[in-house]
Computed example of a mutant assay.
Amino acid sequence: MGDVIAVTGAGGFLGRAVVARARAEGHPVRAILRGEAPAAWAADPGIAVLRADLTHAVPPLDGAAAVIHAAARMGGDDAAQARETVAPSAMVLEQAARAGARLVLVGSIAVLGTDGIAPFARIDETTPIESHPARRDAYARAKIAQERDARALAARHGAALRIVRPGAIFGPGRLWNAHMGITLGPLTLGPRHAGELPLCWLPHAAHILLLAATAPQADPVEVIHALDDDRPDRARFLAALGRRGLPLGWRGFDAAAGVLAPLGPRLPGLLRREILRARLMPLRYDNAHAHRLGFRAEADFETAMAAARGAA
């Protein structure tokens, strides 16, 4: 029997996959969620369900070897993100640290900046965080704040912390991602280039998070990018979905965003240069740190996408 793993956001898209992976590997799980638990969990004595609204209170974490904090809001403005992502994260990690558990924060590669990065640069855990959060969206700002708070808490309590930054996670019911461009009916308008999409198949994300919770840790704080080995370009992604693209050159996208840049925050989403560059700039990615933890890919892109579509 493995050590107890506590998982917040256990009822969500990622949380359920983490619970399933932990149970498959013999770990008792403390599943913390706000809504109803999957019915199948009632038949598993290794899953202890704790229902809690983390915006108000954090359930006991004593006895957990690690806490995987996956609960977060995906959308909403800064106020919603502060209330439902940033503040609960600080409370969960504070209590986990006091309980002596390893902290595993589910972050996002959305925190990375593109200042000074050239097209086709290789992105890894040493790539700087966005230096102008105000120019990005509320989600990116919340994830940046989560990392800041987690590092401060870990330092204050002397706790081990791993920040796992998944790329765009795909699985049953969630195939699309913000790195594809703009959808116009059956067409997708996006840059034409051989850059990689920073994808992470749901089972791979769960695997890396469990490794982060259980593998020996040398440094007090570690950052791990959770990405697939087989990272397609946009054309290959669209082909796997049977969709058509309307490709344009990257330079045209970037130049248009530059012309509109003086309008700043008044612009929606992808019309803001920093957001456009973070989502559409041709880049390459590195997942060597995940492999050092013990990650081994279980499927190539087409196999993973076929499994995700078949289970949707």
Rank of each mutant, 00 (worst) to 15 (best):
V7Q: 04
G9N: 13
A10G: 12
L14S: 11
A17H: 08
E25H: 11
P28E: 08
R34I: 04
A42F: 04
R51E: 12
R51D: 11
H56E: 13
A57D: 13
A57M: 03
V58F: 00
V67F: 00
A72K: 07
D77I: 00
A79Y: 01
T85M: 02
S89I: 00
M91F: 01
L93R: 04
R98W: 04
G100C: 08
A101H: 04
V106S: 04
G113I: 01
T114D: 10
P119V: 00
P119T: 07
T127M: 11
E130K: 02
E130Y: 00
A134R: 13
R135Q: 15
Y139N: 10
A140I: 05
R141N: 06
R141D: 10
A142G: 13
A145M: 05
E147F: 00
R148E: 13
R148P: 03
A152G: 00
A154F: 06
H157W: 12
R162N: 05
I163D: 06
V164F: 02
P166C: 02
G171D: 11
W176A: 06
H179Y: 00
T183G: 15
T183K: 15
L184M: 13
L184H: 08
E196K: 06
C200L: 13
L202I: 12
P203Y: 01
H207S: 12
H207Q: 14
L209V: 00
L209C: 12
Q217M: 15
A218M: 05
A218L: 11
P220S: 13
V223E: 13
I224M: 01
L227S: 06
L227P: 09
D229L: 01
P232E: 08
A235K: 12
L238W: 08
A239T: 12
R244N: 06
L246Q: 08
G252T: 08
G252S: 06
A255N: 03
V259S: 00
A261D: 14
L271D: 10
R273K: 15
E274T: 13
A278P: 03
D286P: 09
H291V: 02
R292L: 08
L293F: 10
L293E: 13
R296I: 07
D300A: 07
F301Q: 07
T303R: 14
T303Q: 15
T303V: 13
A304C: 11
